[in-house]
Nucleic acid binder design. Sequence first.
DNA 1: CCGGTCACCTGAGTGC
DNA 2: TGCACTCAGGTGACCG
Length: 277
Amino acid sequence: MPELPEAETMARDLNKRIAGLTIADVLVSFDKIVASDPASFAPLLKGRSIQRVGRIGKWIKADLDSGAALLAHLKMTGQFFLGEWPGSVSSPWPPHARAAFLLTGQAEDQTLYYRDIRKFGRLRAFSRDDLRDFLSDLALGPDPLELGPGEFHRLVSSKKGRLKQVLMDQSVVSGLGNIYADESLFAASLSPVRPASALTPGEAETLLARIKSILLDAIELRGSTVGNYQGLDGPGSYQDRHKAYGKSGQDCPRCGNPFARAIIAGRSSVHCPVCQK
DNA sequence: CCGGTCACCTGAGTGC
DNA sequence: TGCACTCAGGTGACCG
């Protein structure tokens, strides 16, 4: 899924389309998709109006007027889309739809669907207090877009492990995944396999600047649509700007040497072994 | 405590 | 065509 730019796009789309509406009904067609207390899931949501939809790392959070919230993590293939309330012959459950939220408050009722082909994603509903505790236990690191270079250097260089692995550790910095880690390391000419603890302050400053620039450009283009990701209002196009991710077998556009593919932290990684130091 | 591996799932692509 | 196999944006549980 969805890394930071895709989660940001989805949250913005949702905020634009459903903020102010009321959740009148809730249906779940695949029980495991709800990872908070199943008995309180629908009761916490029904009758509440959605005040705002935002993002925390790769998580999407819808704040309700009661102080409760709906949290979603899309993992690899989760997404939201709008449709018609399911259950009739003319309106069956759409393919791979796992939950449905009936939204009232506009001229015509709408249904917000959560779809997830691989069923890795999870939905949670929390009261105000339980939400605070859950987010606290998650211990997400700061958002890279709101981070300064000194703090970034301190966070990254204090960790053991390879640079790419540390960048993808959500407790260090929240929001980077396989695509944007590979792209950022390539843009900063830094090798994904070097020890994170060896990052100099100057290299950290450059890396953070590249991360921010890439994430902002990707948000501008509604994220990267690889596989089946798309926002509520359509797919993204940042995949056309990828320089390293998915370019295994091609030559480095900076120095012309062939890209190398390696498994780092269990993830397929592409980098230039010559110009990424 | 740590890093490495696998499990969770389905579908798309590839090669025989 | 069809089948077997690999791979995919992310975590979280397990294991040595």
